[in-house]
């Protein structure tokens, strides 16, 4: 993975804006930001980010590659679309945030301990197994995401809700043992594999 990162560093030699343009979804738009700050002001999570969107865009232009790609900021985006609705320059900010997150993940630079990043991985792993989300397992893995101790604490805290969900048949304990799947799991897996191949061919990534 870090090979790929090095490859990109060598390829763009400090021109991070160009790297973003070429590799990040909607990255082409970053140059058009006029630094008005409306997005940062509109973002409900902005105050909790290290770098709200406006700043991220400026950092990209200032060539702060590591700081941006290793940042937890774009992982904080909840896709509320406030910023897109308001950006006077029409930047698809939400999409750029997700694009940056994806790219940093691909480069192996995504923050390991960032909760939404972690959860995204859990969700992916859960989903790709059977082609259906196993909610019980996903819930539990979320609880235990940060270790056994915290997992038990959270589970106990949530137990009433859990029991109620069982009672009203919103959740089945049987899911824990296997769980439901899509009709053709094999086909589904093959599809994912193919998609990954196509993606890798597209971005010209060598090792993975």
């Amino acid at each position: 993975m870090s090979n790929y990162n090095q490859e990109m560093i060598d390829k763009y030699r400090g021109n991070f804006l160009k790297e973003v343009q070429d590799n990040v979804e909607e990255g082409d738009w970053v140059k058009m930001c006029m630094q008005c700050g409306v997005c940062s002001g509109s973002c409900p999570l902005g105050p909790h980010w290290d770098h709200p969107p406006q700043e991220i865009f400026m950092m990209i232009r200032a060539g702060k590659r590591e700081e941006v790609l290793e940042s937890t900021s774009m992982w904080m985006c909840t896709s509320c679309y406030n910023c897109i609705a308001r950006c006077p320059r029409g930047l698809p900010i939400t999409h750029i945030m997700h694009g940056l997150a994806t790219y940093s993940k691909r480069l192996g630079l995504a923050p390991q301990q960032q909760p939404t990043a972690k959860f995204a991985q859990l969700f992916w792993d859960n989903l790709t197994k059977k082609g259906r989300v196993n909610e019980l397992k996903l819930g539990l893995s979320l609880y235990f995401m940060n270790g056994i101790g915290e997992g038990i604490k959270t589970s106990l805290k949530m137990k009433d809700i859990g029991l109620n969900m069982l009672k009203t048949k919103r959740m089945s304990p049987m899911e824990y043992f296997g769980g439901h799947s899509c009709k053709d799991t094999k086909g589904f897996q093959a599809m994912l594999k193919k998609a990954q191949e196509l993606e890798e061919a597209r971005i010209g990534k060598s090792g993975s």
Binding site: L17, K18, K31, M32, M34, Q35, M58, R61, A62, R89
Partner: peptide
Amino acid sequence: FYRSGQDKLVTFRK
């Protein structure tokens, strides 16, 4: 014209 400058990758920095 400003947008065109941005499009041509002129860097604007406050």
